[in-house]
Design a protein around this nucleic acid. Structure first.
Lengths: 364, 364
DNA sequence: CTGTTAGCGCGTTCAG
DNA sequence: CTGAACGCGCTAACAG
């Protein structure tokens, strides 16, 4: 039974007024300082030539009144909202949390605020959000795109709003993009397992229609190819980014006649399912099975053995994305030499912990 | 290689200019429809009396031009930005992810967008963000407050911006607040363990200066008191919300001369540390030790045994917070009967999984 | 029913 | 160095 308690308190609370009252405007400041509105403006923005004395007077007045410029009015005039759109498909994943966190911080430091939109990978949602963001006259957009609203993204860009795509990219590369080095990451992880002596490596990965799904699979195949190991389709499980994918794939992989000695789960959401199945079936890691996951998470450290991962360094991705965006914002202010879109790849790195070891019967 | 295509249109539309070009304004629509700007406005907003014919004409013109109202201009005029501030201390926790997600979705459905600010529990950061949000003329604010910027929060509220506090509340209760039923939750969890036969129950909890830290501790003590179990201070570990707290506290609790038979970790961030230590020391759950955590997380399900938790139902907290905010927003539009602040408590519920069992030597 | 006029709060000419 | 006038894009008041 859940208890729900509603408490009423009869306190005083702030005096009610129409609205937006006691929001000081420049006029009030000017009046108090005994100058005109335009002088006050110049004094505070520091744009024009104003005598030091009046500057002081105006600043003091502004301070004492607690004046804060109205960004709406300023934005309307200056054509700048100081707002950046952040449209991601979800935030239920350490990678995206980190991304959101870092992007928000960095942008705030440059006095930009972010409008957060979560699309849930719905094309319609994304379209709606893009429209709205445009209405709010965002000055830039960072997005993990669904991939299907290319025209709309183009419109955003054509409206003079720099677009940076992260994690995923559109088929045509018309926008700056910061991606994970997924092919390389998956290859590197697979190689690591191969070098340990593994031949039969189960591979769980995201769907073919996602950038990371395609590329990680390519990386896996590449590493196998380079090691001269024949590709066994039965070892590859491609499915949506979900716990269920992990559960089903893992079960299937454990029932193979020719057992696997290592499992590379390159589908982060599926990892939870995989680890759960392995725990349930008491498969000892890494003795019976080596496990390597993708995209780091605190949860991987709080188990025994702790799980080795390919870390995609979301903080770096965020940093680069902001860099790219800022560059575009600066450029826009000055000369507009439309540079070709950049595509950055942030390197993936292996974090060795305790979940991988050479296979038991490694005789060769 | 990336290709970049620049489209030049030789259409009638607005000529190329520095920025924000090809953003159609109402004037363009009006012109195309052959009416005045105000008629166009009325036709699109549906406010005044306009003939059906002209409405059609204007709508068609707007559609063909891809007109989108400038929220900045509209906001300046209407004193409404359609922006809501969301200032949370972090998002590295399933609870806050869920909160952010639900709040964003619900508000978007009512055509509000959220500006996300992450304060990192820094008082200065929070102050800065509040100022900025005010500048952007947010119409409402949902926050997990640090607790120290009361005056600033009051100013926000006094400016006519409804404030809803979640998870935590200020000492003086001047704002609507949606909190967790922490006292009850902790008591309920402790009772559950007691009913199973546990007497020595280790308790890890957040610091005294947080609402949840205080209240959960109170709940633990209460349950013990009601069961007539003497309080042993050695069993209580109070520390910051961090993995380290979990590690250290857990180690200490395991070294007790009189061992504990159950561990209630009511400090979510610490859970990771606790589980890690228990895994390392091969303490078998629940045979040797029952473990109960607080605030659910996918990670708790992907282990074996899966971890039982006190779920604080963040989705419900978010829903109520939005409800409260919307109520205040509506009220503001109409009559202004300043209601006393409401404090809602969202019930915590026990989710039984596999990590708790009666103590081994339960003879009684 | 519609066009005209007048601001919302701010930055920026253009004269002094 | 300063003030008066103008306009950003939109809605609301007032006339026709």
């Amino acid at each position: 039974m859940s208890t729900k308690r509603i408490e009423h308190r009869m306190q005083v609370g702030p005096a009610r007024e129409a609205k937006g009252t006691l929001l000081i405007k420049l006029e009030d400041v000017a009046q108090m300082a005994g100058v005109s509105v335009s002088t006050a403006s110049r004094a505070l923005t520091g744009k024009g030539q104003v005598s030091k004395q009046t500057v002081k007077r105006v600043q003091r007045a502004a301070a004492s009144l607690g004046y804060q410029p109205n960004e709406l009015a300023r934005g309307l005039k200056m054509r700048s909202s100081r707002l950046i759109g952040l449209a991601v498909h979800n935030i239920f994943n350490p990678t995206y949390q980190c991304l959101a966190q870092v992007i928000q911080e960095r942008l705030a430091r440059s006095n930009y605020q972010i409008i957060l939109c979560i699309t849930n990978d719905s094309v319609e949602q994304e379209a709606l959000y893009l429209e709205t963001l445009l209405n709010h006259r965002i000055e830039g957009l960072i997005a993990v795109p669904t991939g299907s609203n290319v025209e709309l993204f183009k419109r955003v860009s054509a409206a003079g709003v720099p677009v940076v795509t992260i994690i995923r990219r559109h088929r045509e590369d018309i926008f700056d993009a910061v991606l994970q080095a997924d092919t390389g990451g998956a290859a590197q992880g697979t190689e690591y397992l191969i070098r340990m002596g593994h031949r039969r490596i189960g591979f769980i990965v995201g769907p073919e229609d996602t950038t990371s799904g395609r590329e990680r699979l390519a990386g896996y195949k590449q590493a196998l190819g380079e090691a001269g190991i024949e590709l066994d389709p039965a070892l590859i499980h491609q499915g949506p980014y979900s716990v269920e994918t992990g559960i089903e794939s893992c079960r299937a992989l454990l029932q193979l006649e020719q057992p696997i000695t290592a499992l590379f789960c390159a589908n982060h959401e599926a990892s939870g399912g995989v680890l759960r199945v392995l725990s349930e079936q008491k498969v000892s890691i890494p003795q019976e099975l080596s496990v390597l996951c993708y995209e780091d998470s605190p949860a991987f450290v709080s188990r025994h053995p702790s799980i080795s991962v390919m870390d995609n360094d979301p903080a770096a991705i965020a940093e680069y994305a902001v860099d790219l965006l800022m560059r575009a914002l600066q450029r826009e202010a000055g000369d507009p030499p439309a540079l070709a879109p950049r595509e950055l790849r942030v390197g993936t790195r292996l974090i060795v912990r305790g979940s991988c070891a050479p296979p038991k019967k490694s005789k060769e």
